[in-house]
Design a protein around this nucleic acid. Sequence first.
DNA 1: CATCAGGGCCCTG
DNA 2: CAGGGCCCTGAT
Length: 332
Amino acid sequence: MDDASDSTIRERSAITVLRRRGQTTLHPTLPFHFVATAHKPSHFPTPTEVFAENTLWFTMTWCEAILGVRMEPGPDSAVLLSVYADRPLHSAEIEQIASELTFRFGMYLDLSDFVRLAALDPLLGPVEARWRGMRPSCAYALFELLCITIVLQNATVRRSTDMLQRLLETYGRRVRFDGRTLLAFFSPSRIAAASEEELRGLKVGYRAKMLRRVAEFFVEHETFENDLRSGPPERAANLLRQIYGVGLASVWYLLFEGFKHVDAFDHVSPWEAKILGKLLFNDETVGAERVVRTATKRWGAWRMLAVHYLFEDIFWQRRAQRVPWLEKLIRL
DNA sequence: CATCAGGGCCCTG
DNA sequence: CAGGGCCCTGAT
C-alpha cells in the first residue's frame, strides 16, 4: 500500500457521521436579519462552520455529544434548525439546544431602542437600515472562544488559522452531516491532558501554556460560562481577566461576541481603531482613545453594537468590491 | 542572508 | 506603568 492511499484511509476512518436527530424553529425578536447574524465577514473563516446559499452549517459540542447544526431562514423571520448528532436526542434536548442557540446568536435581544438611536445618526442610520436586525453572534462556547482569542494573539490571520486548524485536527473531531464535512472542537479535558511540549509541536509557541491553563480552568469550573451570563459586564470582565492568557483585547471580544454585552466598547485594538477612525473621521490616525470616547458619547449603552454594525458593513462592502484603504489595514 | 513586526499578554523593575 | 520577551512566519 502506498502512502497516499494509506493516509486517505486514515482520514476517512477518522470521520464521524452524524445523523439527523430532530428539528425545531427559533423565533428571534423582531427585527431580525438572518444573513448578517449567521455570517460575519470580518471574522476569519474557521473549519467548524461554513456559510453558503443562505444557510449556516456548524459543529457544536454539547453535553458530551457532538452536534452538527444546520440553520436557515424560515417564514416570518423564523429560523429553521436541523440538529444532527452522534447519538439520539430527546425532544427536550432539542429544545435545550434551541434555547442555547437563541442565546449564542443573540436572538433574544430587544433592538428597538437601538433602531431609534441609529435613525438619529447620519453615519450609523443608513448602515443600521442596511443590516436591520443583525445581532452579535458566536456559535462557540466560552472555552472555544477563548482558544480562538489565544491563537489570535500576536499573530497574522494566516498564522492564527493555521494554529486553530492544527489544534482542531489533533484534538477535535472530523464530522460529516447534511453533505458537509467540518471539524468539531475538543473538550477542555482533552487539552488539559496534553503536555506543553506536545502543544508546542503544533507550533502554537508560547500560547501552549495559555491553552493548558485555560483548559485546566474550565475542567475545574464547569459552570463558569453560565455564572457569567447573569450579572454585569464588569463582573464578567474581572473574572475573565483572572484567567492566565486573557488580557484587555480578549475580554473585549468575549464580552461582546460571547456574552452579547452591546455596550462593551471601552477598549479597541490598534488595527481596529484605524479602521473605525477612518469610518468616523475619515482619518485612520486619530487613535484608539478618541474612537472610544466618540463612540461612547454618540451611542452610549449601544456603542459596541453600533461599532459592530459599522465594522461588518465595511467588510460586506469589501466582499462585493475590494476597499483599497481597508486592505492596507488588514494583515492577512 | 538577517531583521522585524504581527488582530497580546505576562512579568519585571 | 513602561517596556522587554515570547513562538513562529512571511515580508522586506
